[in-house]
Design a protein around this nucleic acid. Structure first.
Lengths: 206, 206
DNA sequence: TGGTCGAATCGTGTATACATGTATACACAA
DNA sequence: TTGTGTATACATGTATACACGATTCGACCA
């Protein structure tokens, strides 16, 4: 696994928490390389909005406040609802089979560590028919930002049943080509996720 | 002016056309610096989606096809209409005065070289009340991508009157707090711009 | 004459070395 | 005791040097 992949994984998993200061010299020593590839990796992570490079200071893992996180989720709602709306009217049978398969797999991972990957795979399988690579890349970035902050908290398993039910409802509407319905269900689903995270963050700040 | 600013300006102005291959060694010699700052600058431009870094090959200025440009404009419509809708209900008097001032200034530049800056300033002044820094940054990136491709063609002045009229209509609705109306007018405005560019691009490809 | 193999050249990737700016800690003065 | 100034240490920014890979040109062979 390459340097940038390792750093990205550790940041997204919360191993390197938000606000951490990443020092080139330390990383270079730890990975047994010079500082140049480390600089490249940090700039690449900055391109993905996972860290912010402060000139002469180093790279800091992003740490967003409630307002900024709310904006991230609002952007996700805007972009993901548009994607599912576009996609629902263009699905092929192979794509429907694929999405059903991904949904079944994500059911098994629900609540278990690494559930975020399954959740993302399911959502992305719904968006694939839209054929909007740039928009999908943006959604990945926004989801990375959210995942990075979610990893700080051990997400409760109490809402997983509601969460699973949402997924099945969204999938059914999507599969049936009911674009407006799928988009509305997705909006409610993401809004609930937004409110949940904001509740955690504001509770943390007290 | 710093290295990255110079490169960005030349790319956006079309001086370095889409598809150009930027070589580290050549840029280093031209600017009288070593290759390290050049690498940094190219990676920073890659973060803004202005170039794509091909490992072992160099950095290439992006060149989008009709389908990708259409996606960029659709994303702009999605994000900018949401911004104007959020902003129109939260304007302060100072912001309305500021936008009117920017509109008057952009009127004078219409059709003249550099009109894109005035157009962007006007639109951004409308979005400012929304207080969505990340969303606004995304719009800037998307507008950069569009500007880079628009710079290839000498934009005709025949549509400027229609274009100016659009701006005044959008401004009036925005100023009056008519969010839905402003968003609808903006959507039509941007759709026209999209179709115009796509027409130029497809005509070029023959 | 066309194709293929090989060598040379060019450009990037990386390591090492030096310069610059910043943060921190300590000492001294108010 | 507190604030400021300076010195030291450290991290980043940059230049130079070397290694690897790719591409291209040429030569040789079929």
């Amino acid at each position: 696994m390459t340097l940038i992949e390792t750093l990205r994984r550790d940041i997204l998993a919360g191993t390197i928490p938000p606000g951490s200061l990443l020092m080139q010299t330390e990383l270079a020593a730890r990975f047994g390389v010079s500082r140049i590839p480390v600089r490249d990796a940090l700039q690449a992570l900055a391109a993905e909005r996972l860290v912010t490079v402060v000139p002469g200071k180093g790279a800091r893992v992003i740490r967003l406040g409630p307002q900024e996180l709310a904006e991230v989720y609002d952007l996700r709602i805007l972009l993901e609802c548009d994607l599912i709306h576009r996609a629902a009217r263009r699905t092929t049978e192979a794509q429907r089979d694929e999405a059903a398969h991904v949904l079944a797999r994500s059911d098994l991972e629900a609540g278990r560590p690494g559930w975020e990957a399954g959740d993302r795979a399911f959502h992305m399988s719904l968006y694939a028919p839209a054929e909007r690579p740039r928009q999908i890349a943006l959604v990945h970035e926004l989801r990375d930002t959210a995942a990075l902050h979610l990893a700080q908290y051990q997400v409760l398993a109490e809402n997983t049943s509601r969460w699973l039910d949402d997924h099945h409802q969204i999938f059914n509407a999507w599969q049936a080509g009911q674009a407006a319905s799928a988009a509305a269900l997705l909006a409610a689903h993401l809004t609930a996720a937004r409110d949940h995270l904001l509740q955690l963050v504001t509770a943390q700040m007290r």
